[in-house]
Amino acid sequence: MKVLVPIKRVIDYNVKARVKPDNSDVDLTNVKMAMNPFCEIAVEEAIRLKEAGIATEVIAVSIGDKACQEQLRTALALGADKAIQIDTDTKLESIHVAKLLSKLVEQEQPELVILGKQSIDSDNNQTGQMLAALTGRSQGTFASKVVVEGGKALVTREVDGGLQTVSLSLPAVVTTDLRLNEPRYASLPNIMKAKRKPLDVIAADSLGVDLAPRTELLKVEEPAKREAGIIVEDVAELVNKLKTEAKVIS
């Protein structure tokens, strides 16, 4: 079984995003970038499927300019067999990403596509669902457990009321929640080996997808700042303030 894992290069999750002074966007110059944490979990899950003898080939794919090859090399160092960069410097929306990926799914015919449930920059939580729709596949979003057997994927999903398990007919699309697994670290020998693994570059234009923007970013602002609070001495003062000053309890 072939597994396709789309990954995204994003701001490192430890870095606090700064808004540009002209409010045009978030400032990403000289900011540390990394693989989106949910994508790391997707890569790990694919590699575990390979180690369990279920997956035969793991292909990592990323869409962006040359810089995203760094994250693809990371995926290769973690155990992916080959990588594909869909080269573009256009700013893309989830629908564009899903369409580009659907072309790749047509070409590669993976039985399973595993994506992160959302990227920590745009926080959209859309791409996996859109890809499933465009390829007419079943979807298992927010997965915290994936069991593949007998032509089906049994996916336990994190839903608001608890956990829901669904059985998906393969081929399927799965998106990962943080609790799915604990991603491994790449060892130095594996990082060295990853440099010799194949990394193909496909021009986004060659895939015949209309990448014209459909949403305009008018403005990016800092969120409203909260007023600095006060430190109270003890419980009695706290309760008193909540009753008389904040009036949130009676």
Binding site: E93, S94, I95, A98, D123, N124, N125, Q126, T127, G128, Q129, M130, L131, A132, A133, L134, Q139, T141, F142, R157, E158, V159, D160, R214, T215
Partner: peptide
């Protein structure tokens, strides 16, 4: 933007070939 809405709506958007605005 509950887990149910987040699960379904992007699928709707893609089937209609629309870009979605989340949350």
């Amino acid at each position: 933007a509950s887990t149910t809405g987040k699960n379904t709506l992007p699928r709707v958007a893609a089937l209609l070939d629309k870009s979605q605005i989340s949350e």
